[in-house]
Amino acid sequence: MLKYVLQRVLFMFIALFLVSLFTFFLINSVPGGPFENPAIRPEVRLAMERRFHLDQPLIVQFGHFLRSIVTFDFGISLIVQPSRDITDILTERFPITIVLNLLSNFIIVPLGFFLGSLAALKRNRIPDHAVSALVVVFISVPSFVLASLMQYFLAFRLGLFPMIFSTSQNWDWDRLHSMILPILALSFGGIAFITRFLRGELIETLNSDYMLLAKTKGLRTHQAVFRHALRNSLIPIMGMLVGIFVTILSGSVVVEEIFAIPGMGRIMINALLSHDYPLIMATTVMYTFIALVARLLIDLSYSIVDPRIVIGGGRSAARS
């Protein structure tokens, strides 16, 4: 087990290295640079480029970047928030995006499970059709449209929620209250995704032999569903959660824009559009790292959900 974890962690860092290498050369292949601006005089530009090692060969620049990663000193932002320490920017903005994301997941999982099992148990009856209609709406109306609709009707017309993100600096009620609408807007896609998947999965399971056995033993339908059927659907859904988590991470860019949330979204896009290389690389490393850690955690927790899964076991035990 420990050996397996160590192996995975080692692989994680190799993957991190490969992704940053790839991103680094890709962003440098985009024409233009951070100081290519008619308002900047050529000699100033050259001086700036020398100051930030931009005049050196790419491979040397990549070496500088690697050193900055190892020392956890990402340097300063060039354009987006000039001269500000990148570590500072990240520690200020990342927690907001992550909390939004995690809270959305806390809504997605129970609601997705509820709607999915409701639709499967009441198959081809009114609840099923209602849930299917909801899923189609959630999937076919983009989150930015749903977000603006909620902002207009729930916040502006009815005044139930603040229109935009609270300016409060602490994690107090004001801030949480203003996060409800963005969280909802981020959750719709995931809810639809899990609901649809669980419905298909459960309908198949409900006809299986072990469900018949469970019922023959005298279990009620809901007992059989909750203790036997749902537990078996957990494994694939946990795998999907990583995908949902990562999707929300990029999806939150739009929602952050609508509700004026000072998260990572705007920073990331501005960095990419203005060639703010140190900031782009720092965000890429952060996002990649988070995705890899999420995947690792989920993989490790499989054996808790289903004890039959032996993590890191030999070929014969793990795959059959």
Binding site: L16, L18, S29, V30, L273, T284, R295
Partner: peptide, 18 residues
């Protein structure tokens, strides 16, 4: 796994600008 770890949005924006 490596491809999966690449942040999609960043990649898409880079490809679109490139």
């Amino acid at each position: 796994e490596v491809f999966n770890a690449v942040p999609t949005l960043i990649m898409v924006i880079i490809i679109a600008t490139r």
